[in-house]
């Protein structure tokens, strides 16, 4: 798994996916306000741009006329045919066992946490010259995604 810095949290608007390209994959990253989710941006139905769809509440019903929502759970609705996928697991609503889309772990943290890609190549030694350094506080949080190779 490679960890990628997708930039500051402020770059992810609430309630809709931002489409990012990571390792050649199109991925939708969703900021729901309380946490982040990421799904492969390809609907398993007919290959539609899944994450350009709407982020929907987790709607269930115990009986006709009753509507209930589960806090913190969301569905991504494909813009092509309305198929819904669990934002967390990628499982489809109507066929969770067989119809699913790949989810990716997303974390939020400080920028100081380096990703594997950002690490210095090994074997380099500190040189003799030192520039004057200033302390910089990073107040913004960044979004990281882990994508398997």
């Amino acid at each position: 798994m490679a960890r990628h810095n997708l930039g500051p949290v402020s770059g992810f608007p609430l309630g809709a996916a931002r489409i990012v390209e990571v390792e050649g994959r199109s991925i939708g990253v969703v900021n729901t306000g309380d946490r982040f989710f990421a799904l492969r941006n390809v609907c398993p139905h007919q290959g539609g741009p899944l994450c350009r769809g709407r982020v929907m509440g987790w709607l269930e019903s115990e009986r006709p006329g009753a509507y209930s929502y589960t806090e913190g759970r969301y569905l991504m609705e494909c813009p092509w045919h309305g198929w819904e996928f669990d934002l967390e697991t990628g499982q489809s609503w109507f066929d969770p066992a067989k119809t699913r889309v790949k989810p990716y772990p997303v974390t939020v943290g400080g920028a100081a946490e380096p990703s594997a890609e950002d690490a210095e190549p090994s074997g380099r030694q500190p040189g003799p010259y030192t520039a004057e350094a200033y302390a910089v506080a990073v107040e913004e949080q960044y979004v990281f995604i882990e994508v398997g190779r």
């Binding site: 709607l59 269930e60 019903s61 115990e62 509507y67 045919h81 309305g82 198929w83 109507f94």
Partner: peptide
């Protein structure tokens, strides 16, 4: 159609 629009009739929980 249910796969697409089941949100309108969420009490229908299977095909």
């Amino acid at each position: 159609m249910w796969k697409s629009y089941r949100r309108e009739i969420p009490w229908v929980k299977r095909l």
